[in-house]
Amino acid sequence: MFAPEFDYYRAGSVAEARELLDAHPDSTVLAGGHSLIPILKLRLAAPAALIDIGRIDALRGIASDGSTIRIGALTTHAEIAASDLLKGKAAALPEAAGQIGDPAVRNRGTIGGNVAHADPASDLPAVLACLGAAFVIEGADGERRVSAPDFFQGLMTTAVGEDEILTGVELSEAGDGEASAYSKFAHPASRYAVIGTAAKVGLSDGVCTSARVVVGGLVPAPVRAGAVEQALVGQAVTTELIAEASRKVGDSLDDDDLLGDVYASAGYRKASAHAWVRGALSAAVARAG
């Protein structure tokens, strides 16, 4: 519970943060601190320097140009959970953010820090993958945008390079007849997702026109449940269809990849994941209809 010694720098801008990162090879970016500080206190990491980007106001906030929503990397889970814009146009995201940890965590933890940490049991990777988010990364050559499958490279590993900073996340607004939802089995202690599923569906006259289902928590990086999606698209959506389609989630899960622990084994997680898929799909369909 006592962090090893490190130097601390506070950046006033993204450019300055990048300069500091460049100047201090063994450094780590500090945002809300909810992933990094516990790791330091447990002495699981010992960076020589922390570059604090927490007060760069330009990285905070949620805005839309009418089709694309941009969420600054420093936007807190609480701000996301409370956003009417997101509730209307990307409902799965505030729904997930509102289930992270507890109020103290949500008031400090940020979307950028969360996804840059890439804990598989975290809620947001699956949601952002489902919503087709683009991750905006700033580096020496300017901004680049990376999709979720390319961003989440595995356990605690992302596409953000050593001298780069994740500045925000972009989402498309849900169109007419589209909606999303998140359904989660929370670990009773950590509140991380034992199983987390995000679903986005499009409906037209009761027929499913599009479906994207992403599972997190039990896999090292978010996994699209293609078999579930295929079972839905083009079909008239009923409770029975959702249940039946949800059961196909196992087809998309590779047994060798499944995560298990002392609380919930990989086998159990796989066997019961369909219930959470069904929960997310049912909620998304209800919203879309």
């Binding site: 670990h187 009773p188 202690a189 950590s190 991380y192 002392v262 609380y263």
Partner: peptide, 10 residues
């Protein structure tokens, strides 16, 4: 194995 509040469910 349950040596932190992340693992031990109160």
């Amino acid at each position: 194995l349950t040596g932190t509040m992340l693992d031990y469910a109160l």
